[in-house]
C-alpha cells in the first residue's frame, strides 16, 4: 500500500500533535476501563461507535426524515410544531407546468430554470471534463521528464477553495481585466462576459473544469498505470497499429475508471454551487442559477423563507443523486469483477 511508504511522515505528525492529545487519552482511560469492567468486552465496540453514530444520527439521518416532513408542510416558521400540514401541495406547486420543456410556462419558473440550467451545465461540464482529463492523463502517462511535477501542476487548482477560484477568474474576466486587454491587443472588441447569459454559462463550465480536472486526471492516470505492459508487448509482436492499440487495449481496460469518473463528475455536477455562485451570482438574471442555489435562495435568502418549498426541491435533488449513486455502485461493482 502506498500509505505505508509515508510512515515516517505519519510519525512526525504524531509527535507534532503530541502532548495534549496524549493527555486527553490518558484522562479518558480510567472511566473507559471502568466501563469495560461494567459492560464486558463484548459491548465495547458500541462504546467506540457511539460518538460517530450520534453525529451521523443528529446531522444526517434525523435531518433526512425531517426534510421529508418539511416538504409536506407550509408557512414560514422554522420549528415543525408551528408548520401546518399541507400534504403534497409543495410538490404540486413545483411540478405545475403547462409544458415541461419550457420553464416559462411553469408556476415556479425559477425551479425549472434551475433544472434547465443545471442540465446544460452538466452536459458540457462532464463531457469536456472527461475529455480533457483523459487527454491530460494520457499525456502524463507518456515517458516524460518530471512527471511528478506536471502531475502536480494539473492538480494544484483542486486544492483551492471555490471562493478563491471564482475570485481569481472574476478578476481575469472583468471588463478591464487581462483577458479583455488581450482581446483588444489582437484587434477585437471588449466583451462584457457577465452581462451575456451564454458567456456566463461558458465561464461557469470552464472555471469548474479548471478547478476540478486534476482530480479526475489522477483517477484516470492511476487506471492507465495499472494496465499490464505485457498487453502492449503482445500487441507489438502482432504488429498491431497504434490506433488499434488505443481503441482495443487502452480504452477498454480504462473503461471502468472512465465510468467512475463520469458518475463522480455527474454527482458533483448536479450539486454545483460554490464557484459559480461567487463568479456570476447566478446571473445575469437567472442564467447561471442552479438547483442548489435555488434551494439556498428559497430557504435562506429570499424575503420570505420558504422552508417547505426548499425541502421539496431538496427531496427532488436527493432523488436525482440517489439514482446517480446507485449507478456509481453498479459501476464500481462491475469494476471489481473485471
Amino acid at each position: 500500500m502506498a500509505l505505508q511508504s509515508d510512515h515516517n511522515m505519519g510519525e512526525r505528525m504524531a509527535n507534532l500533535a503530541g502532548a495534549p492529545v496524549r493527555l486527553l487519552f490518558t484522562v479518558l482511560e480510567p472511566p473507559l476501563a471502568a466501563l469495560q469492567r461494567g459492560l464486558g468486552i463484548k459491548r465495547m465496540p458500541w462504546i467506540f461507535l457511539v460518538p460517530n453514530l450520534v453525529f451521523f444520527g443528529l446531522f444526517v439521518i434525523v435531518p433526512l426524515f425531517i426534510n421529508f416532513f418539511y416538504s409536506l408542510t407550509g408557512g414560514t416558521q422554522l420549528y415543525p410544531d408551528d408548520r401546518p400540514f399541507v400534504g403534497t401541495e409543495q410538490y404540486g406547486f413545483l411540478l405545475d407546468c403547462q409544458t415541461y420543456a419550457d420553464p416559462q410556462t411553469c408556476r415556479e419558473d425559477r425551479f425549472w430554470k434551475a433544472i434547465y440550467n443545471t442540465s446544460i451545465f452538466i452536459v458540457f461540464q462532464v463531457s469536456f471534463m472527461v475529455l480533457f482529463s483523459l487527454i491530460t492523463a494520457l499525456t502524463l502517462n507518456r515517458e516524460i521528464r518530471a512527471r511528478g511535477f506536471f502531475r502536480a501542476v494539473f492538480f494544484f487548482p483542486v486544492l483551492l477553495s471555490p471562493v478563491v477560484v471564482a475570485l481569481i477568474w472574476k478578476w481575469i474576466l472583468l471588463r478591464d481585466g487581462i483577458l479583455n486587454a488581450f482581446l483588444v491587443s489582437i484587434g477585437l472588441d471588449k466583451v462584457l462576459f457577465f452581462v451575456s447569459p451564454e458567456w456566463s454559462m461558458f465561464w461557469a463550465v470552464f472555471v469548474s473544469i479548471w478547478a476540478h480536472m486534476g482530480f479526475y486526471t489522477l483517477i484516470l492516470l492511476a487506471g492507465l498505470q495499472a494496465i499490464p505492459p505485457d498487453l502492449y508487448e503482445a500487441a507489438e509482436m502482432d504488429g498491431t497499429s497504434k490506433e488499434r492499440v488505443f481503441w482495443r487495449i487502452t480504452l477498454p481496460l480504462l473503461w471502468p475508471n472512465m465510468l467512475v469518473v463520469i458518475v463522480l463528475a455527474l454527482i458533483k455536477g448536479v450539486q454545483v454551487f460554490d464557484e459559480v455562485f461567487v463568479l456570476t451570482g447566478g446571473g445575469p438574471g437567472t442564467a447561471t442559477q442552479f438547483i442548489v442555489q435555488y434551494i439556498y435562495n428559497t430557504g435562506f435568502t429570499n424575503q420570505v423563507q420558504n422552508f417547505g418549498l426548499a425541502s421539496a426541491a431538496s427531496v427532488a435533488l436527493g432523488v436525482a443523486l440517489f439514482i446517480l449513486t446507485m449507478a456509481q455502485l453498479a459501476v464500481t461493482r462491475r469494476k471489481d469483477d473485471v
Binding site: 443528529l58 444526517v60 426524515f65 415543525p80 439556498y296 431538496s314
Partner: peptide, 13 residues
C-alpha cells in the same frame, strides 16, 4: 447524503 440535500433540516437542528 451530502449536505446540499438536507440544508433546511440541519439548519433546524
Amino acid at each position: 447524503i451530502p449536505i446540499t440535500i438536507i440544508l433546511v433540516p440541519v439548519y433546524l437542528v
